[in-house]
Design a binder for these strands. Structure first.
Lengths: 233, 233
DNA sequence: TCAAAAGTGTTACAAATACACCCATGT
DNA sequence: ACATGGGTGTATTTGTAACACTTTTGA
């Protein structure tokens, strides 16, 4: 490397860069968000998203994966970048830029001990506590993004267990969009997507009659996602 | 601030953070991208997106605005974050994370002297030279994003001059999506959006008959964008 | 036997697509 | 008078939205 080059880079500012995860989960009833009590000043003890600084020798996405695995024990989770929050004064502790990333996980898969060890708690969207810094904003941006994405990709499946019922899928979408859908039309549209495989088992946990369980056909599903379906509800 | 806090922050890594702009423009014929010849090593003299390091005392978005104003002379340009590129080895010069941001500008509004002074050149999408680092990737991601966004917001208007004709708007969309649209259906859909005001003038630059010029109604347009229209073509 | 959730079809309306000819004008 | 791009309408298909009753079964 030339001296000129070194000079050029060397004259620039280095800045703290962090990543914060907006972790969505679904418990067959409503959609929830994982937050925990911050353990460092400023704002120690207040509710916060889960995050970490990006280290010199790891990529931004790896940092987010690390955070997610640390707290839930899960790997290979669906995760997408949301946005960079780069205002100069967003963190009174120090100039720090953060990359918001939202993740969709199956709550039942989490490592409960790990989650509890970190003091992390699942909150319903309509019962979210106030969060530190600009984290309320990150959450609200993530929700918009989630709804948008769910409208052109059947993204919601990431939040469901292996086997699930149509009514439970419907509750998920109703929870994401905060509105009721017509049972018949919902079922019709989902079936028409042709990505579900009906099983011979029933889930009787929510009714006496029981609802048939479905899996989804990963191949057809991936093909659909790739093509970019238009999945309006 | 407590010592504990200072210790916590102080123990973290600081990293170079940059922003690179994917600048789209339209010249009434096809959609183009502004790139320039890199002036610092490594890769000095090769084609590159236009970017800059983020300074300690400026926000990430302000840095992007600065870059855009420096090179085009324009302010208040439509600009959106695309994605963060945070791989450890993406820049052989130094560990450097970049925030890709795409901008839509009206080519006719640019300050030509400034653009030329920087050695920046507009390239057609299908004649893009190879770019340094991961910039080819940024461009291809931005295109995907642009197409996606154009499908739920009439984003294309940002690229047109004050007064424009329907055929020119159609060429813009055809250029974005790289396919032909039916004249009658296109016109029907655009008119149905109810955001255009027909003027009494004609533009005769592209035909003998001349095509009526339109402006758009910023109020109706903003309301539409806010609601999040579904603008499929 | 009854309460509670699961499952099923049809009709009306709205939107998207496909398609072909006349118009205005400069050369 | 003719070549060139601008402008218009309709029929068909497709998709979306609205709507009510029967089924199953555990308690």
């Amino acid at each position: 490397m030339s001296t000129q080059q070194l000079d050029y880079y060397a004259a620039q500012d280095k800045i703290y860069i962090a990543t914060d995860c907006i972790i969505f989960g679904f418990d067959n009833h409503s959609i929830k968000l994982l937050v925990f009590k911050r353990r460092v000043a400023p704002f120690e003890g207040e509710w916060s998203l889960i995050g970490s600084f990006v280290k010199n020798n790891e990529s931004v996405n790896d940092a987010a994966k690390r955070v997610l695995t640390d707290i839930t024990g899960l790997q290979n989770v669906f995760m997408k970048q949301l946005k960079v929050y780069g205002e100069v004064d967003r963190d009174p502790g120090a100039r720090c830029i953060t990359v918001g990333q939202y993740a969709l996980i199956r709550i039942e898969d989490q490592d409960i001990e790990l989650v509890e060890k970190h003091g992390a708690v699942w909150h319903d969207l309509d019962e979210m506590p106030n969060l530190v810094l600009d984290h309320n904003q990150l959450v609200s941006d993530a929700l918009v993004q989630l709804r948008l994405k769910a409208s052109y990709q059947p993204i919601g499946f990431e939040l469901l267990p292996e086997k699930f019922t149509i009514p439970s899928l419907q509750r998920l979408y109703e929870s994401i969009y905060q509105k009721k859908f017509d049972d018949r039309n919902f079922r019709k549209k989902i079936i028409a997507l042709d990505v579900l495989t009906k099983l011979d088992e029933k889930d009787k946990s929510t009714s006496k009659k029981g609802a048939f369980l479905y899996k989804f056909n990963r191949k057809k599903y991936d093909k659909l996602v790739e093509k970019g379906i238009n999945f309006k509800l």
